[in-house]
């Protein structure tokens, strides 16, 4: 069983459209949406939820007003500025528990909080593991790890060949959680200066964790000069550019229709995406 995670650094470069198309092209696979705070893959794969689970993450401090003597020690010691006027700001509290440990009258208790849900679903393309982190919640990395572990179990049980995972934007905690131990990172890049800048940073993260990299340039004809720069950069850094996908409004049309683009159109975009999946599956099996 081999796992590919689709990343980009910069958001909105086409990760989800690609993963949905891979879902339609790959034979034996489990799908995962690791973008747990703005999950969109379900909009194209239309899952039927078969199992819904609560996600309990850390804790939040609660001050019992009846016991509190307003000594102010907790406010003084909280490194996150989460306690003001003997009230805990739930959004700022990082659940470290220091306040509750040091309160001289034991007025502070730590309460567990439910920070979201995660789901095992069936789609017409196979099983999808996805999640919804509560708005403003922390611990997105933990939730990503949870959905990935669940996908591994499903893949092992069903003897599936591939795990195809839609990654979050950025390079921080949820990206690191999506990436560790994957067999391949497919980086989807647009030929803009921002895209190139972000590509360099996400390559840095993949290398830091020792994950093999494959690059795909999306909308390459928006700025062909920049596309050459990306190819040069990748060449100089021993990274393969698998395909270059042209700009075509069919990608947006397919999203509006709620379909993977390879099931909506048979044009150049679809040809390139088919080619890309071929290259990805070969890489995964090497």
């Amino acid at each position: 069983m081999k796992e590919v995670v689709v990343l980009s650094g910069k958001g909105g470069t086409g990760k989800t459209s690609l993963v949905a198309s891979f879902a339609a092209l790959a034979q034996s696979k489990v799908l995962v949406d690791c973008d747990v705070d703005a999950a969109d893959l379900y909009l194209l794969l239309k899952p039927q939820v078969t199992e819904e689970n609560e996600f309990w993450s850390g804790q939040i401090a609660f001050i019992d007003k009846k016991v509190c003597t307003e000594c102010g020690l907790c406010q003084e010691m909280c490194r996150f500025g989460a306690i003001k006027d003997y009230f805990v700001d739930k959004i700022s509290c990082e659940g470290c528990g220091l306040c509750s440990q040091i309160c001289p009258v034991n007025a502070i208790i730590m309460q567990s909080c439910m920070a979201g849900h995660w789901f095992i679903s069936e789609t017409s393309y196979g099983t999808l593991i996805h999640a919804k982190l509560g708005i403003t919640e922390e611990s997105s990395g933990k939730l990503v790890t949870l959905v990935r572990n669940s996908a591994r179990l499903v893949a092992e049980e069903g003897k599936f060949d591939y795990i195809i995972s839609d990654g979050p934007p950025g390079i921080g905690c949820p990206v690191i959680a999506s990436l560790s131990g994957a067999n391949l990172a497919l980086l989807v890049i647009e030929p803009t200066l921002s895209g190139i800048h972000d590509l360099e940073r996400v390559i840095g993260v993949c290398r830091h964790f020792g994950i093999p990299i494959l690059v795909c340039i999306n909308k390459y004809d928006i700025n062909e000069e920049n596309s050459y720069r990306i190819e040069d950069y990748c060449h100089n850094n021993d990274i393969e550019v698998a395909v270059k996908i042209p700009f075509d409004n069919v990608v947006t049309e397919a999203i509006v229709e709620g379909l993977p683009v390879v099931e909506y159109s048979d044009g150049k975009v679809t040809q390139q995406v088919r080619e890309l999946w071929k290259i990805v599956s070969v890489k995964l099996n090497n």
């Binding site: 705070d37 982190l133 922390e138």
Partner: peptide
Amino acid sequence: VPPGTSCPVVEAVK
């Protein structure tokens, strides 16, 4: 602000 709806976004927007 960064994309998403979790802690970095809250920190940036609040």
